[in-house]
Design a protein around this nucleic acid. Structure first.
Length: 392
RNA sequence: GGGGGAGUGCCAGAGCGGUCAAAUGGAACGCGCUGUAAACGCGUCGGCUAUGCCUACGCAGGUUCGAAUCCUGCCUCCCCCA
């Protein structure tokens, strides 16, 4: 049973709402009591081009601190992205090209401002201080021991399973910790999988004679499969820049079991269990659309959704695919081009009755159609892919 | 420095000379059911203008009528000893 995470770490402040833990006990209250604005750090490694709802959970927490008058320090980990965070990893992370990291950094920052107030956010890239001469790097890393780093679960598990752990990965916590020194962090936020990194940063700060930061961890948001962590690489994410129709559709496909967590982490309210699950899910989906795709987009997306799935209508805004008029059209080829699947796949789908033209299933043995019969019609592939065929 | 083991499809993991486009499970996809939820049932899951053809089992060669399966070299990973 998961759901209520509110009282973690004994922090009684409103700002700790939803957090899994706030460590060490009392540290946050103590700092808040000082009355000065705290420097609240959140680091995100730009390993993918888009921010999704999983990132939003922790960004939203940062926004709350911001709203309470504290300083939001958003670190784009353009340098640590090159190293690769071993947290929760069971294998070596593939390396990203520098240009890729650079492009991701830009979109990340832009998209983070869909949650944060840009005027009250200090954005830093950690290459500013981590891109240092090796002599300085050595001086930094010699402060810590291998035994201390190997305490972490991910490493011991991988080593036990005879899987590789690179030297570079071992360095990751040290680098992330040094970020805290560089930005003089009072509090660092992160997902629960970041606990080791966040706590290790305290050691790094201490070794530099700084006051160690408090840390606050937030629950991990499951992806649209309802089970695994939301992530780009698992393909179970909802991006904040996606069109409302996508956001709505994806959220509706999230299993009911994950709804309490979605409500708590994304809407900031407890799910009212007396509501019909379908209605509660629609409500959530509308709110998220309104927030990220623009006010009112939720209702519009919902209407479109119902037209397609309840009334079985074809969407008016389906992408357009042009064909030449004259002669027959070979359906597998058309599907391949229109939907970006392979020709073999197209044939299989056809054979499985997954192709509809204006709502009518194409017979499995039908491979060619006169082009005249296709012009102006909507081809549907499976439940949610649509293309409107238009004469060229 | 010495000794041993392993690299198979999106992932995990069988296969160990022909019947292998490669068992099985998971993921994914499709159809049905439904609340585009879950669960369940059935099916698909390399490519190709397709009853056949092509490309594939770390990479490169070789042996064989025939290789994922045998040999040689290379690359990568792991373990043990020092």
């Amino acid at each position: 049973m998961r759901g209520s995470h509110s009282e973690g770490g004994g922090a009684s402040t409103e700002l700790a709402l939803g957090a899994v833990d706030v460590l060490p006990a009392g540290a946050l209250e103590e700092r808040l009591a000082s009355g000065r604005p705290l420097r609240v750090k959140l680091g995100i490694d730009p390993t993918a081009p888009d921010i999704h709802l999983g990132h939003v959970v922790v960004l939203e927490k940062l926004r709350q601190f911001q709203a309470a008058g504290h300083v939001a320090v958003l670190i784009i980990g353009d340098y640590t992205a090159r190293v690769g965070d071993p947290s929760g990893r069971s294998a070596l992370r593939p390396l990203l090209a520098p240009e890729e990291i650079d492009a991701n950094s830009r979109t990340f920052q832009e998209q983070a401002f869909k949650v944060l107030d840009p005027d009250a956010t200090e954005v830093r890239r950690n290459s500013e201080w981590l891109d240092m001469p090796s002599a300085e790097l050595f001086a930094l890393v010699r402060r810590f021991t291998v035994a201390r780093l190997l305490e972490r679960d991910d490493f011991s598990k991988r080593m036990a399973a005879a899987e590789p752990v690179s030297l570079l990965e071992l360095l990751y916590p040290v680098l992330q910790g040094y970020d805290s020194v560089a930005v003089e962090s009072d509090l660092e936020l992160g997902g629960t999988e970041q606990r080791f990194n966040l706590l290790f940063a305290r050691d790094v700060q201490t070794s530099f004679g700084r006051e160690p930061q408090a840390v606050m961890t937030m629950p991990i948001l499951p992806g649209t499969d309802g089970v695994r962590k939301m992530s780009k690489s698992l393909g179970n994410y909802v991006g904040v820049t996606e069109p409302a129709s996508e956001i709505f559709g994806k959220l509706m496909s999230v299993p009911d079991d994950a709804m309490p967590l979605y409500w708590e982490l994304l809407v900031g309210e407890r799910l009212d269990r007396s509501r019909h699950p379908n209605e509660a899910k629609r409500d959530l989906a509308r709110r998220i659309c309104d927030r990220f795709a623009g006010p009112g987009s939720g209702t519009a997306a919902e209407e479109r959704f119902d037209r397609i799935h309840l009334d079985r209508e074809t969407p008016a805004d389906a992408p357009v695919h042009r064909i030449e008029i004259g002669g027959d059209v070979h359906l597998p080829a058309l599907i391949r081009e229109a939907f970006g699947v392979s020709g073999s796949e197209a044939r299989r789908l056809l054979a499985q009755g997954a192709v509809r033209i204006d709502g009518e299933t194409v017979p499995a043995d039908r491979l060619d159609l006169p082009s005249g019969d296709l012009a102006g019609r909507v081809i549907q592939l499976g439940r949610r892919r649509f293309v409107r065929v238009v004469p060229d």
